[in-house]
Amino acid sequence: MLLKFRDQRQNPSEDLKGQSRWRRAASPWVAAAIPVLIFLVAVHVYSNELLLVDMAIYIALAQGINIIYGFTGYLPFGYFGFFGVGAYVAGYGIIHWGLSGPVAVLVGGVGGALAGAILLPLFRLRGAYFALTTLAAGEAFYAIVSNPSLTSITNGPYGLNLATAYSSGWSFGMAVGLAGVAILVAALIKRSRYGMTLKAIKDDPYSAAMAGINVARDRFYAWLIAAAIAGVGGAIYGWAISVFYPQDVFDVTVSVFAIVFALFGGIGSIWGPTIGAALLYAIYNVVGVSNPQYFQLIYGLIIVLLVLFAPRGLAGLMASIRERRLFGGGAR
């Protein structure tokens, strides 16, 4: 599979016309590096580091949604479940196994991936049913983790305190690193044979199977990657804020934001989810922290308008503008 990953497609249909070979090849790395650099500069200019950490995590989550929904066609409303599992697995690692923050975060990612593996049977379900059943699964994870009967393991409803492992520099660095890695992975997948395989699976799983694609397995890889991203994201978040309750990390808002950000920016594109997440999260911080209901109203309206008028998001709008300029006004 690794070999497939690196194969370059000879003729990607969505390529900008006339872009030279070397620029095409560099794009994934550029798409990952630029946001990373911006974050590294911003932290020296802007004092609220936690906000930057959150934004970086959301960029990563939006790319995770991009991979599983944009590329593969499965929308997991329950994405927040992996975020919460990651936070708790990392937290458990810190408290019970004495792991350091960074190591615990990676273990959290593994936890997220495992949770994804558990939910594998859900892929039998189509579209809306998959979305809603993952939502139920995410809530089920929450109900289990926060259950008073399990206090000895998860501290039940009382939350975790990870203050001993607090390290603001490291958590910021890992958050930015996660964003960079998530963007890179998404971009590399998109222009690889594997990305083409995912598109085929998304378009028609039966036809894809007859084209020799092991649909279940290839879909599973995308799911694991997305789940791991969410797991790491949750782990970093829990670590960065140090003290959290189950409802803080098993919060459906995490899924909502990730999905809305990705849709707004444009799923299927590489820069879309990055810009969508950065932009909307910035707006959230201006409007939403003090008045979350106004931000909720805003993004509710954004969702409705997007679905009705611009399902391909900002990236789609840019593409339409470019197409219209290339082909001129009038009949196509």
Partner: peptide
């Protein structure tokens, strides 16, 4: 297939490439 099931997100060539690559 009775009703053709091509991969709409891919170009014609890419449709064939997917299969050829897996073969």
């Amino acid at each position: 297939f009775q009703i053709p099931k091509p991969f709409f997100s891919l170009s014609v060539r890419e449709n064939v490439e997917v299969a050829a690559h897996h073969a």
